[in-house]
Design a protein around this nucleic acid. Structure first.
Length: 963
RNA sequence: GCGGGGAUGGCGAAAUGGUAGACGCGCCUGCCUUAGGAGCAGGUUCCUUCGGGAGUGGAGGUUCGAGUCCUCUUCCCCGCACCA
């Protein structure tokens, strides 16, 4: 390899940094603290290109901040609890601890080879008892304040990993880690009450300086919706004595539903319970044994549903269900008795696990109603405005009941329309309903009167719409309530049409295409036409209420909360977010510091006994029932020894996301035996200034640690209520084939090979150059890319050989000033790719010189130092002498130099580029126009006329418009 | 379906509303050497009658001027998804 000896250069630089203890931050002495954090790695054993991307590129930022004069904390640790260690134990008989700690040892050496300026003196590992002692202590703090609780709930179970999972760890119905389809089980487990913080987690997102997509993903995950709880009283047909049935609150038996559309309650034609709903289980209670005629059918349905995996329930979207025969619910708005169903399209875990079904206005209910022959009752009419004739302000509003009939002739496949003689209108057949007249009768009468056709068959009632327009001849705003019908013409039978009707309009049969090409004089045309040709569907928007008692005629959105009040409902907010399930039936995790008394009641392990040690005498075989901790004799004996006969341990361990929810406090005071961190240092150093990580943690780690932090804030254990200030989600590196790297595809790039050949600096530069680091894109690894970065470094070495003590020209100093500006602002935004580009451009200036001025070269090296720290250190040493380049400071750009500079001003004529002129930035418009005359094409135009408009942006553009 | 992001040369990508394609890869030409997994110099959006013309997924609009702002649309990626 030509150029410099990267192995020697890098080894020397790394030794120098370590001997100078360059990166051991003195936290107490810091004047201008800046905390740079990356997500600590799981010690899987091998450092791959993704680790380089995560660590080395965050290191660039940390080095830049340090040169900028900040006191930087840039720590590292290991997220060292986790399943792979245990799987290795099962597969190869290795001890999880040995396996993990050997991996950590290997990774430390690899991470050092990147030239990352991490502060090893503050290293932590979550599996160290000195660390997990405080995980346990914090867990107990949450428990003591009611934020950790044991409860029975349907939970996701991964049969392969033999453990429960949090909701966030289930992706498309499968285990996030191993891809196995998860099952649902009902178990008593430990939960952290993250739902108590849903509102704050949501509201506090707004001011965070994060990219909107991260915030939006968290907002969607929290999933706030506002609605109402409405209770539907029950009556028992099979056994009326059950009508005395009271729920635990003493209220008469009733099903409470959650809905965001209480305005549609008048259209609720049945009620649906999730198979997991408490009432469904109550049917088996001996007390209420006799409520259903079809108990066996219900039992079978519930059983079948239970056996389905999460993914099967998601994939098979056909809406199955079974009616509870023997129970009726009372619609509190209409007073009508409606049936009760059990169906798995209703989720047990959302809202109240029960819904009121409004088929006319909810797609899912509509689908279910169609399949099960249930009534569809419209209560919201689409509201349309006639734009050619809109309602006028201040005019009286007058309602009118009318019919709108669309007649189809199947023989000719044409539709009946009217062409109006006095108006430019084409319409279907409309007409007002007479007092006491049925809509259908009106429709048939109007068709007969206006067109003469009499032999019609009703195909479909299309529902009601409400159109609003200004009726000029009456001087009022008309609110037309249209009953819309679709008829089929059975025969051409016709009666005579009255002369006055003939005089106003002409009957025309038109094809579908002809009608679509016209503008029909009905504002609801699109709505109706879609229903005719694509079939009925639920109308899910807001509109005008109809058939809704006293609320009819009002806007559905506006009347929503009045309806809730009128029927005794309760306004409420619901969240999609579920409590965080933290129990894991696994060995290699933080033991849950809880013991059970002989009655099975949980008690905190006393703080004196922390850390509550993970036992070592366990059997990892998967055949054991539940957590491997159950096989430990030592743990059982420990509990009995400390607490007495009959007391038992908690056998589950904590989700590793609990460890990572607080690890960044521990870096501040990693050895503290008396506290989880240092209160004074937390005030000084938190929140984390910049947190660099992967987008896969947006709704897991990032949300969990925000919750954890807020909970600790409320307990006065941490000083701020948000843990992280700026956050960047990096992208991913793809294989050379543009596919995601994976062993099975054989496209995994091993960084070691490239480091060996080109050096760590070249690999760092290449990863930086591949694309913007502040955006979560994906970038394919180009096999020639690292080589080209090495070439760039070699060119710098060549230039360094011509460094002399000479004066820099003004032009060179000007170019340097621009480069300092550009590189600094790019590094600040983690746009490393354009920073390198600027360094390459400036290198060309240096290469043009036979003698390179020493101060200019040294400033250039400082700009390079964050990106290529080893070579910058080396060249700094041989061209200057003692000290480390990383202890210098970022050069200041001499912006005064830029003032007198000639700028290229583009001369345009009507926005088209015609040429360019050189002008100082402060040149006047007159000077610019004068200079523009030197361009022949422009001078020619000036010869015949003067420009009608001149746009002059100094230093940029002169645009002349000749009209 | 809903929410978010995106679409610029053969490829990765640059462009406070002001020269589109910086920088790099690849490719082409030449040089140096003779075999290095090199190095150096020049060229490289497309079309062209060599005057120019066209061009940032598509169609409109705002503007002196649009990759950038607005409306509609197509496609791709990510997240959520029977959430009532």
């Amino acid at each position: 390899m030509a150029g410099y000896d990267h192995k020697q250069v890098e080894a020397q630089a790394q030794e120098k940094w370590e001997s100078l203890r360059l990166y051991e931050a003195d936290l107490h002495a810091a004047k201008d603290p800046y905390y740079v954090l990356f997500e600590f790695p799981y010690p899987s054993g091998d450092l791959h290109i993704g680790h380089w991307y995560a660590f080395a590129l965050t290191d660039i930022f940390a080095r830049y901040k340090r040169l900028e004069g900040k006191d930087v904390l840039f720590p590292i640790g290991f997220d060292s609890f986790g399943l792979p260690a245990e799987n290795a134990a099962i597969k190869r008989g290795a001890d999880p601890k040995t396996w993990t700690y050997e991996n950590m040892e290997r990774m430390r050496a690899q991470i050092r080879s990147m030239g990352t300026a991490v502060d090893w003196s503050k290293e932590i590992a979550t599996s160290d008892p000195e660390f997990y002692k405080w995980t346990q202590w914090l867990f107990l703090k949450l428990y003591e304040h009611g934020l950790a609780e044991r409860k029975e709930a349907p939970v996701k179970w991964c049969p392969k990993d033999q453990t429960v999972l949090a909701n966030e760890q289930v992706i498309d119905g499968a285990c996030e880690r191993c891809g196995t389809e998860v099952e649902e089980r009902r178990l008593t487990q430990w939960f952290l009450r993250i739902t108590d913080y849903a509102e704050r987690l949501l509201a506090d997102l707004d001011p965070l300086p994060w990219r909107e997509e991260i915030k939006d993903a968290q907002r969607a995950w929290i999933g706030k919706s506002e609605g109402a709880k409405i209770t539907f009283p029950l009556s028992f047909k099979k056994d009326p004595t059950q009508n005395d049935w009271r729920d635990p609150d003493g209220k008469p038996a009733g099903i409470t539903v959650f809905t965001t559309r209480p305005d549609t309650v008048f259209g609720a034609t049945y009620v649906v319970l999730a198979p997991e709903h408490q009432w469904v289980r109550a049917i088996w209670d001996t007390e209420h044994d006799d409520v259903a005629f079809n108990k066996d059918e219900i039992a079978k349905y519930v059983e079948v549903t239970k056996r389905k995996t999460e993914r099967e329930r998601q994939e098979n979207k056909e809406k199955t269900g079974v009616r509870i025969d023997g129970i009726m619910a009372l619609n509190p708005a209409t007073g009508e008795e409606i049936p009760v169903y059990i169906a798995d399209y209703v989720l047990g875990s959302y809202g109240s696990g029960a819904v009121m079904a409004v088929p006319a206005h909810d797609e899912r209910d509509f689908e279910f109603a169609k399949l099960h022959g249930l009534p569809v009752r419209q209560v919201v009419a689409p509201r349309v405005t006639d734009n050619t004739n809109p309602p006028q302000e201040g005019k009286e509003e007058v309602g009118r009941d009318v019919t709108l009939s669309i007649v189809h002739n199947p023989a000719t496949n044409r539709y009946l329309t009217l062409d109006w003689k006095e108006q430019p209108w084409v319409t279907f057949i409309t007409g007002g309903m007479d007092e006491g007249e049925e809509a259908l009768a009106t429709a048939l009468r109007e068709i007969k009167e206006e067109t003469g056709y009499t032999d019609l068959e009703l195909v479909r009632y299309l529902g009601q719409t409400q159109s609003e327009f200004y009726a000029a001849h009456k001087g009022v705003n008309r609110v037309a309530r249209n009953r819309c019908f679709l008829f089929s013409l059975k025969s051409e039978a016709r009666t005579e049409v009255a002369a006055e009707e003939e005089a106003t309009h002409e009957v025309v049969w038109r094809t579908k295409e002809e009608i679509e090409a016209l503008h029909m004089q009905h504002a609801e045309f699109d709505y109706l036409w879609k229903r005719i040709h694509e079939g009925d569907s639920a109308f899910t928007e807001s509109g005008a209420l109809i058939d809704s008692g006293a609320f009819s005629g009002r806007d559905s959105e506006e009347a929503k909360w009045d309806i809730v009040e009128a029927i005794g409902g309760e306004r409420t907010t619901n969240y999609r977010l579920r409590d965080w399930l933290v129990s894991r039936q696994r060995y290699w995790g933080c033991p849950i510091p809880v013991v059970y008394d002989p009655d099975g009641k949980p008690h905190s392990v006393s703080p004196d006994h922390l850390p509550w040690m993970l036992p070592t005498d366990v059997d990892f075989s998967l055949s054991s029932d539940g957590s491997p901790l159950r096989t430990s004799k030592e743990l059982k004996e420990r509990v009995e020894r400390l607490y007495g006969e009959g007391w038992t341990p908690e056998y589950d361990t904590l989700d590793t996301f609990v460890d990572s929810s607080w690890y960044f406090y521990r870096y501040l005071d990693p050895k503290d035996e008396n506290d989880f961190s240092d209160a004074g240092l937390m005030r000084q150093w938190l929140p984390v200034d910049r947190y660099s990580g992967g987008s896969e943690h947006t709704t897991m780690h990032l949300l969990y640690s925000r919750f954890f932090h807020k909970a600790l804030y409320d307990l006065a254990l941490v000083p701020h209520d948000e843990p992280f200030n700026e956050r960047n989600n990096r992208g991913i590196i793809l294989g050379p084939d543009g596919q995601k790297m994976s062993k099975s595809k054989g496209n995994v790039v091993n960084p070691d090979e490239f480091v060996e050949r080109y050096g760590a600096d070249a690999v760092r530069l290449y990863l930086s150059f591949i694309g913007p680091y502040n955006e979560p894109g994906s970038y394919p690894w180009n096999l020639d890319g690292v080589h080209s970065m090495r070439r760039f470094l070699d060119r710098i070495v060549t230039v360094s050989e011509r460094v002399r003590d000479v004066e820099a020209t003004e032009e060179l100093r000007r170019s340097l000033a621009k480069t300092i500006e550009k590189v600094g602002s790019d590094l600040e935004r983690m746009k490393y790719n354009t920073a390198i580009s600027a360094l390459m451009v400036f290198l060309k200036d240096l290469e043009a010189l036979t003698e390179v001025p020493r101060p200019v070269f040294h400033q250039y090296l400082i700009l390079l130092a964050p990106l290529a720290p080893h070579l910058a250190e080396h060249l700094f040493g041989i061209t200057k002498g003692a000290g480390s380049i990383h202890m210098t400071s970022w050069p200041e750009a001499d912006l005064d130099l830029l003032k007198g500079e000639l700028k290229t001003v583009i001369v345009q004529v009507s926005g088209k580029r015609k040429g360019e002129i050189q002008l100082p930035e402060d040149a006047s418009e007159e000077d610019a126009i004068a200079a523009a005359h030197t361009i022949p094409a422009v001078a020619e135009l000036f010869a015949s006329s003067d420009p009608s408009r001149v746009v002059y942006v100094p230093g940029r553009i002169l645009n002349l418009v000749f009209s």
